[in-house]
Write a protein that binds this DNA or RNA. Structure first.
Ligand SMILES: [Mn+2]
Ligand SMILES: [Mn+2]
Ligand SMILES: [Mn+2]
Ligand SMILES: [Mn+2]
Lengths: 223, 223
DNA sequence: ATACTCTTTTTGACTAATCAAAAACCACCT
DNA sequence: AGGTGGTTTTTGATTAGTCAAAAAGAGTAT
């Protein structure tokens, strides 16, 4: 049984691979950065993950999940996201605080309990942040979404996913009613000024910077 | 923050102290036995717990919780038992399988989530096995119970607590409807034969041995 | 191709938790 | 007091995960 450290590394490697679909591998610098360890630690962990055949590791090359590694990564991701759902839907925790909690529970829960939770929730397909939940076989269905920064002025969009788990950012999103599921209209998208103004229902419009807008993924207007 | 290993040792030491209220200390042999480690490991852990002031340790003497250690032990016990309640009451898991699950979740849950669960459950005072749940301040209210082996023949008793978390034993208890809360009549209590026969409602009577009966704690007839 | 910089790997060290086996100790019995 | 059995401690080793700092390598610019 892999330790929770191993589980965390694999989940992280998976997310980094997704975040940069261009790059074929995850570098030691990148890995050390996101895991909050020194580069030397990342290297020795890469070797040990390679020994367990969770990743392919090429010295000076970087690390890349094997099928085996991806399977495990997706299992942890499934746990993480189902737990987030459960905490929000069943216990009424705030979506801005469930990420940390899920970060530790994901390693402690049995498969049996997880299945029970999945059933209890009615087999949800996305978590409270709009992140897709892998199914029990590890299949993940990713809807085609575009970052808010790409939206045309005047377009009506539906918020689908928030790419940042940071509590403050989530509370900002919440305050302006831009949670997944909400419909909103893009009033201004000024690429030169790197600013975007959006409005939900009858609420006052809100203006945000380009980097903030890039973390909000939307479905565009019906084609 | 203490590791889950430390939490497990302290919880265990607390339970051993309770189990033998006569003995002032827990011996290394005892501790090693219940923790499933070698005596040498128990000794070195005893030293390290003493360094953290969780226990008083006297070489060749044994180990005894300090106030600080007891506080932590009770916090873990509270977590364990509230989690068991939650799994049974909210998710419908069987009481015979929640112990193992709680054994790992007790180390992974935040205080905030625990409070939410406590509230959700309506602040229960006992877990599904009848074990008392320490309150948030660490106070534990132990009802005065007697083992079934002490019951008089013909007495009507109320099952209050099952002292063994073993799955098979719990299923046996369940099969004969002897869960905490059930009222039953002691038909035979033959101390020489070390056998006891008990009946619940209209169900067929069941006969069990002395050691099994000793693990079922009851409230006697109204005085 | 040479030098410089940034990344990666190596080395040596440390902590927590564990075991096996040897040594020390305690308690009790003659 | 001396011996014996059981318990406890010590010793030496192992594994996982980590850091700091030195060494090696790779890529880029001149
Ligand atoms: Mn985690
Ligand atoms: Mn999420
Ligand atoms: Mn535990
Ligand atoms: Mn219990």
């Amino acid at each position: 049984m892999p330790s929770s450290t191993v589980e965390n590394y694999l989940k992280r490697i998976y997310l980094e691979e997704q975040a940069a679909p261009g790059a074929a591998v995850v570098s030691m610098k990148n890995l050390a950065g996101v895991m909050g360890v020194t580069p030397g630690t990342a290297t020795s962990m890469a070797k040990s993950l390679a020994d367990s055949r969770f990743v392919a590791y090429e010295p000076y090359g970087g690390v890349k999940l094997t099928a085996r590694g991806r399977t495990l990564a997706l299992r942890i991701l499934r746990r993480h996201r189902l737990i987030e759902c459960f905490l929000v839907d069943a216990l009424g925790l705030d979506w801005s605080e469930v990420h940390e909690e899920a970060e530790s529970l994901e390693h402690a829960i049995s498969d049996k309990l997880l299945d029970r939770i999945d059933e209890f929730l009615g087999f949800p397909s996305v978590d409270p942040h709009g992140d897709p939940i892998p199914n029990a076989k590890g299949a993940i269905r990713q809807a085609a979404l575009t970052p808010l920064t790409e939206a045309e002025e005047g377009a009506e969009v539906r918020v689908a996913r928030i790419l940042d788990q940071d509590e403050d950012f989530l509370r900002f999103v919440d305050r302006h009613h831009l949670r997944p599921g909400t419909r909103a209209r893009v009033l201004v998208n000024d690429r030169a000024a790197e600013a975007l103004t959006i409005q939900t229902g009858k609420l006052p419009a809100v203006t945000m910077g380009r980097t903030a807008a890039a973390k909000i993924m939307v479905e565009g207007p019906r084609p």
